[in-house]
Design a protein around this nucleic acid. Structure first.
Length: 495
RNA sequence: GGCCCCAUCGACUAGCGGUUAGGUCACCGCUCUUUCACAGCGGCGGCAGGGGUUCGAGUCCCCUUGGGGUCACCA
């Protein structure tokens, strides 16, 4: 971007700041809460908060065929889970209620008809089948332009009125200019030019009386005082149409800011066909909201000081919309997991971590005896799990006696079969199982046997945990306690 | 295909005319060590290509190439 535009857009931005900043996300309740929604929510939320403005959530459910009420609830819940709580939303309400678009159809309809009266829009009487046929014909003719053929654009008003009065179904389309250019002033890209000749007389109001996204979004954004439309890049090409809707009403444009699109590892637009895009699913796997948010914050954005670990609060403090980079970032699980591990072992307090782990442990039907014991186990395993579910998977032997034994562990166990009874004897005689006691005892034992410590520890580890990848032996002995240790060694001799 | 956007290590990114092109993940070593991790240290690895502009381009312009988005009575 040139310096000129940089300055121009910054002053544009600053001019807007004299008003209250209002941002929004407008998810459509058609499926699982999407990480792309969380991503947009993050940027909209952070920017609004930084500017002392408001962040609104509005549900775009005007497509009745794809509508899913369950999805609606889960999207709102997801936002609460990640802590990006809207100032106004369907559940919170607010001065611009309702925040569910289907409850605003009357408003949209009125606005569509206003445009009709203004002569900025017109009735179109063809059926979807006719349109499909038109498209097919255009395709067959080898035409590049497959848009609407504007059959009714200049239809005589009397005719149109007559057919409408006769009860004939119709859609309402916007009369977009046939010539000239439309310039989208994108905060990140500068001016983006579109030839009006490339545009289409898109539908504003469907035959079923429901508005199409474009109309509903522009009307609602205007009515709700949205000042900055921060949305995914996939919307960039429909922005000229949005501008023409706004113009037809005589309304001011918001600041447009199109963020890069999250990608699958193959670089295509993030999709559930290729990736797990469900925030709920990450949550169920034991990904922490903080880690998810931190990771999303590095998608197309970075802290000015380049630190990798930062919270939403940190973002609010240092956020700069214009620092968003435009290459489409790949949403990759490796780094997400790393972030999660980092939060588990360095960011969350032990108490906090224990609270997060609890539901997972309970779901696994683990008997964790006490909070103290749970915390001790967590501490022992802390550097060894990256998701909460992984904790469950790697801690079975601390909570249940029916833990599985891996083949490798079994082999190790058999290697030590010769001295395990003797070792059991020794352990049984120890006054306590504190590391200060067990460590020298075990080391002396190994020495007496003339083997390295590992040769004793590994079979013991295998016997007590069924695994070869565990916390330190002395921690295990202490946590398990004498009774369980002796029991397990006894049982091991039968394996 | 038309239109639009984008382009620094495999991935996420810093860089906004003068840098030995920096950091993070992943990967590979080493150290620590009772295993596995963690941690620390080190390594591998990049400005897509070609033209300009300039004393000087990763940084500015153009072209090519590549990737993506969009062309619905979906959002």
């Amino acid at each position: 971007m040139s310096i000129f535009w940089l300055i121009a857009y910054h002053s544009l931005l600053i001019a807007k700041l004299t008003l209250m900043v209002v941002t929004r996300i407008a998810p459509s309740p058609t499926g699982d809460p999407h990480v792309g929604t969380a991503y947009q929510a993050l940027f909209n939320y952070v920017f609004a908060k930084q500017q002392g403005g408001k962040f609104i959530v509005r549900l775009e459910d005007t497509d009745r065929t794809r509508y899913n009420p369950e999805s609606e609830r889960r999207i709102l819940e997801m936002l609460e889970w990640i802590g990006l709580s809207p100032d106004e939303s369907p559940t919170k309400g607010g001065p611009n209620a309702p925040y569910i678009q289907s409850q605003r159809v009357e408003i949209h309809r009125e606005h569509a008809f206003r445009l009709l009266e203004l002569g900025a829009a017109y009735r179109a009487f063809e059926t979807p089948e006719e349109l499909a046929a038109d498209r097919k014909a255009a395709e067959a003719a080898g035409s590049n332009y497959r848009g609407y053929n504007r059959r009714y654009r200049d239809y005589p008003k009397e005719e149109s009125d007559r057919r409408a009065a006769a009860g004939e179904p119709f859609a309402i389309r916007l009369k977009v200019p046939l010539e000239g250019k439309t310039i989208v002033h994108d905060l990140l890209r500068g001016p983006v030019e579109f030839d009006n000749a490339e545009l289409d007389d898109k539908i504003l109001l469907k035959t079923d009386g429901f508005p199409v996204y474009h109309l509903a979004a522009m009307v609602d954004d205007h009515l709700m005082g949205v000042t900055h439309v921060i949305r995914a890049e996939e919307w960039l090409t429909s922005t000229p149409f949005h501008i023409h809707i706004l113009k037809a009403f005589g309304w001011e444009e918001p600041v447009w800011c199109h963020t890069p699109l999250l990608r699958n590892p193959d670089k295509s637009k993030l999709s559930k066909r290729k990736m797990d895009t469900s925030v709920d699913s990450y949550r169920a796997q034991g990904i922490l909201a903080e880690a998810l948010l931190n990771y999303l914050g590095t998608m197309g954005w970075s802290m000015p000081d380049e630190r990798e670990i930062f919270s939403v609060q940190d973002m609010i403090q240092h956020f700069d919309l214009s620092r968003i980079s435009l290459g489409g970032p790949v949403f990759g699980l490796d780094k997400l997991k790393w972030y999660n591990g980092k939060y588990i072992r360095e960011v969350l307090s032990l108490d906090e971590l224990a609270e997060r782990v609890k539901p997972f442990v309970e779901k696994a039907d683990y008997n964790y005896v006490s909070d103290t014991y749970l915390k001790q186990v967590i501490e022992a395993l802390r550097a060894r799990f990256e998701t909460l579910q992984e904790f469950v998977d790697k801690s079975v032997y601390f909570f249940r006696d029916d833990y599985p034994t891996s083949d490798k562990a079994l082999a190790k166990l058999r290697e030590g079969a010769g001295f395990l009874p003797e070792l059991r004897e020794l352990l049984g005689q120890l006054p306590d199982f504190l590391p200060e006691t067990t460590e020298p005892a075990l080391k002396q034992f190994a020495e007496a046997k003339g083997v390295k410590a590992g040769a004793v520890m590994q079979p013991l580890r295998a016997a007590l945990t069924g695994s070869l990848e565990t916390p330190g032996m002395f921690d295990i002995l202490m946590l398990l306690g004498k009774e369980r240790v002796l029991e397990r060694l006894e049982r091991a001799s039968t394996l």
